[in-house]
Write a protein that binds this DNA or RNA. Structure first.
Lengths: 264, 264
DNA sequence: TAATAATGTACGGTATACGTACATCACTTC
DNA sequence: GAAGTGATGTACGTATACCGTACATTATTA
């Protein structure tokens, strides 16, 4: 939705400001913002200090936040709040047993993610050893343009949406191999769309290599991406494309099918 | 917090009703409530229909919900909302590598959870094969009294809190072995407190056996529980208590230590 | 075609939530 | 130890955001 549309909606009388603000406050507690004072929240969100205070106190009394010595942090209840999405949506559960199977065969991690704006969000994950510096879990967000799943999801976007994405995009350099040129990204995505799979080699993190393929609904529409990520020093490009890719494609097929059946 | 206290707070002028209501609506989308109509949400939450509608539309326009043909469901953005708890709180990440290590040694799943009211909430999990009928993930909730981690967490509650919990508790029968007697539960918990570990044998689900021990902060206060769950048909009671328990205790010690160091 | 049950919407009142302003407290800094 | 900095708590009057009732409208079913 465009900002203009949002503004229109905000004045439509069907918009609840306080809910928006409350959710903004929860999101203010992101990485490196482990614990926040009232004034911190006020600064981050742009809300007035009394408003930030009221929201934090409300969250605390509802059990979504806790405070000690005037420093607030979220509680695990917030986590289960997000989990209502998963428990209300069993399609990713269906994928799980297939993913486990794939992981047992390859010995490497497997994940599913969907696109949310400029990010991918992990909705299912079966991991083996840890290969990334950050810990990925269901709910994690990563920038789409630097990941294999992101490439698959972006490549399958309608043309105009992709262009909108590309124009508003701000490319950040994560490693020496990160794509920093929009035209190059566009070419890469065209290639991904044609091949029907995407691969990223240490563009997001040094030593991390991954491939991804789409998951489709009954109509063939891409609804998610599934990937396999490996340690670059351990698994060569040849092995991942010649051995893992066909297997991943096979499993993607089977998962898409299983989800289509149960969604009928 | 007691209801009375909450009511007092609600009238204090520091309570934001709309935020409370909005979060109630999100939580209305729990298991088996995959997709909800406006009137469904109104019924479940007790909110008037126009209010439910306003909240749903607001959530939709913020990207936390989506609708098609008048049926609303949550989006993955809700999931990432919950994930802000994890990313704002790195202590469970610290535990992850230890848990992986434990899983590699035993070949069985390992999880950490904390207490939230009458439920335990999973905050970290490294799983192998799937042994439960439901799929557990970070954010999942289970009733405390029927799980080994729940026993550990309940046993370490202050006396009065435990009593309060026990009096208000409604025991549900999950399997033939589920504890249904409060006195028996009390005795079990006393035993757990003394032994410093808890074990549950198919009380929550047929074929599921698990043991749990506490994780403590620098002051020795119990902050979470860590468990190991196995398939009852594959791993005997003897193996789990004689081989896995000492290992779990060792890892719990190491994790507690690691968290204490980084929290300094 | 009537009836049921859902949704959309208008509207006026009021409780709700707001931000400014001031008081207070904790912690530096000179 | 006094002045200064930056935080929090709180009072209060106001504006408005949000509310629910009531009615119109649109599926859906009988």
């Amino acid at each position: 939705m465009s900002t203009e549309q949002l503004d229109n909606f905000k004045e439509s009388g069907d918009f609840i400001q306080s809910l928006d603000r409350g959710l903004q406050v929860i999101q203010a507690f992101s990485q490196n913002n482990k614990a926040l004072k009232i004034s911190d929240v006020s600064k981050i969100t742009g809300l007035s200090r009394p408003t930030a205070r009221r929201i934090l106190l409300t969250l605390e009394h509802l059990g979504f936040a806790e405070s000690s010595n005037g420093v607030f942090s979220l509680t695990a209840r917030t986590l289960s709040l997000g989990y209502t999405y998963l428990s209300s949506n069993n399609k990713w559960n269906i994928a799980h047993s297939f993913m486990r199977d794939f992981v047992n065969k390859t010995g490497e991690s497997c994940s599913i993610s969907i696109l949310d704006g400029t990010d991918i969000i992990y909705v299912a994950r079966v991991s083996t050893k840890r290969i990334m510096s950050i810990n990925l879990d269901v709910g994690s967000k990563l920038p789409a343009y630097a990941t294999s799943m992101g490439h698959v999801l972006l490549a399958n976007l309608p043309k105009e949406e992709l262009e909108k994405y590309l124009t508003s995009l701000n490319l950040e350099k994560f490693t020496d191999k990160t794509i920093l040129d929009k035209d190059q990204l566009r070419i890469t995505l065209e290639d991904v769309l044609e091949k029907n799979w995407g691969g990223v080699d240490q563009q997001f993190e040094e030593g991390l290599r991954s491939i991804a393929v789409p998951l489709r609904d009954a109509n063939g529409k891409v609804i998610a991406a599934i990937n396999c990520s490996v340690h670059a020093g351990r698994i060569s490009k040849e092995v991942i494309t010649n051995e893992f890719l066909p297997l991943l494609q096979e499993y993607a097929e089977r998962i898409s099918e299983a989800m289509a059946i149960t969604n009928r």
